[in-house]
């Protein structure tokens, strides 16, 4: 009988509380961040979709000029790149950068799910700050986004992209992509901090992806753009990451300035987002 539960004496064991935490919110932070990671890898579907999208860009869009007769002319006048550069090679950094635009969407959606299923209440009824919740969701999203990088690099190799540049240049590019991903995740989660509507993240994603992708130099060189689009591209972090990557992939060199811009972008978004979320993160 399930009704006959014993109410036996429970030996009192003291769950020892830590003294002052070495890092404020450190325990809560690692717990919630690991939760994000565990949940991501329990849902391989999300990972497959995350990877499939940039892969398809590379495969389909990247092959769009495969049959251009005079490829030297194409390289020089369209890509503004050294003769012999393939379009997939040119495109790889742009596609990787563009794919960082919407990775915040998954974090936003899981935050909204936590609000709607009440889990946010369970977290915030413990000594956990809203800033911690926000930062773990942001970094969880960014981590999820980074999973696609190694897969994409293998795909690029399979498409015959020559790997110019040293290991450090590539690591620098991956760091740049990380900063871009953190920045956009931070932006995304701050935008949806007070939202409880499933549709919001998708709408925001659609809204920002198109202009930031095309006005960035990610798909074609910005030097071909009209003046007004160049203006946007000059301030578009997707452009910084694309150019940083293109230096590595096409020229085998590295430009620290772009990495610096990306660091500033990520830091600014994290600071602003934390301030917004501390105040406006809704509980349910």
């Amino acid at each position: 009988m399930s009704g006959e539960t014993k109410v036996a004496a429970l030996p009192s064991v003291h769950a020892v509380r830590h003294g002052p935490a070495w890092v404020p919110q450190g325990s809560q932070f690692s717990g919630l961040y690991l939760r994000e990671i565990i949940k991501t890898f329990r849902n391989p579907f999300v990972i497959v979709i995350t990877i499939a999208q940039p892969f398809m860009w590379l495969a389909f869009f990247g092959s769009s000029f495969g049959n251009v007769g005079n490829s030297a002319f194409f390289d020089q006048t369209v890509l503004h790149a050294p003769v012999g550069t393939t379009f997939i090679q040119f495109l790889l950094p742009g596609v990787l950068s563009t794919s960082m635009l919407s990775i915040g969407m998954f974090g936003s959606m899981s935050t909204i799910q936590d609000k709607r299923f009440g889990f946010m209440k369970r977290v915030l009824i413990t000594p956990t700050s809203k800033a911690t919740v926000y930062l773990t969701k942001t970094l969880g999203s960014a981590t999820r986004g980074l999973v696609q990088i190694p897969v994409m690099l293998v795909a690029a190799w399979a498409f015959g992209v020559p790997f110019l540049g040293g290991v450090l240049d590539w690591l620098g590019f991956i760091l740049g992509l990380t900063l871009l991903g953190v920045g956009f995740s931070a932006f995304f989660l701050a935008m949806t901090a007070s939202s409880t509507d499933w549709q919001t993240p998708g709408v925001i994603s659609n809204f920002i992806t198109m202009p930031l992708m095309f006005a960035s130099g990610a798909l074609f060189p910005a030097s071909n753009y009209p003046r007004w689009m160049q203006l946007i591209a000059n301030y578009n972090p997707v452009g910084y990451a694309s150019l940083l990557g293109r230096q590595v992939v096409v020229y085998g060199s590295f430009d620290w300035t772009y990495l610096g811009y990306l660091a500033v972008f990520a830091a600014a978004m994290l600071i602003l987002g934390t301030a917004v979320a501390s105040r406006y993160l809704k509980v349910e």
Partner: peptide, 16 residues
């Protein structure tokens, strides 16, 4: 339970 222990910053919680 592990997550609850993290959120409450507990140590030595596994026995309990």
């Amino acid at each position: 339970l592990w997550l609850q222990a993290k959120l409450q910053r507990l140590s030595g919680w596994t026995v309990r």
